[in-house]
């Protein structure tokens, strides 16, 4: 399954890469491949902007506008006039939305 093309904000600065492989280890969609001591982006359209590679890269070679790929979060953030898009789940006093309860695997979302 692949999502909308040419929208992912993933940016990679190859000069900073030391080939440690952390990005490939954390990416849930197999976007990176490390060959010859450097990481390569194999298919940018598979990126879901979860931000795992960015925070785990020790060299700061990866940048992405990380966020939740959730229409409900986009709509609710717009209605509430928030600058950053977030869902309402995750706090003690807020109603957990469907995504965050998790389905079959208990981890079916990115919010």
């Amino acid at each position: 399954m692949s999502y909308i093309k040419n929208v992912a904000t993933l940016e990679y600065t190859e000069e900073k890469c030391t080939g440690c492989g952390m990005c490939a280890a954390v990416c849930p969609h197999d976007v990176f491949q490390v060959t010859g001591g450097k990481a390569k982006i194999t298919d940018k359209d598979k990126c879901m902007e979860c931000g795992a590679c960015m925070i785990n890269c020790p060299e700061g070679a990866l940048r992405v506008n990380k966020g939740v790929g959730c229409a409900y979060a986009v709509i609710i953030s717009k209605i509430k006039g928030r600058d950053t898009i977030s869902c309402d789940c995750g706090g003690d006093d807020t109603q957990a939305q469907s995504c965050c309860g998790g389905g079959g695997s208990g981890s079916s979302c990115c919010c």
């Binding site: 929208v7 879901m48 902007e49 986009v74």
Partner: peptide, 24 residues
């Protein structure tokens, strides 16, 4: 169906923003 994006495992925020802005 648009709201299923939140429970899917592969949709990006940039993509969801784009399709929400058009479809809603």
């Amino acid at each position: 169906v648009l709201n299923l994006t939140g429970s899917s495992t592969y949709t990006s925020l940039s993509g969801v923003k784009k399709e929400t802005a058009i479809s809603l």
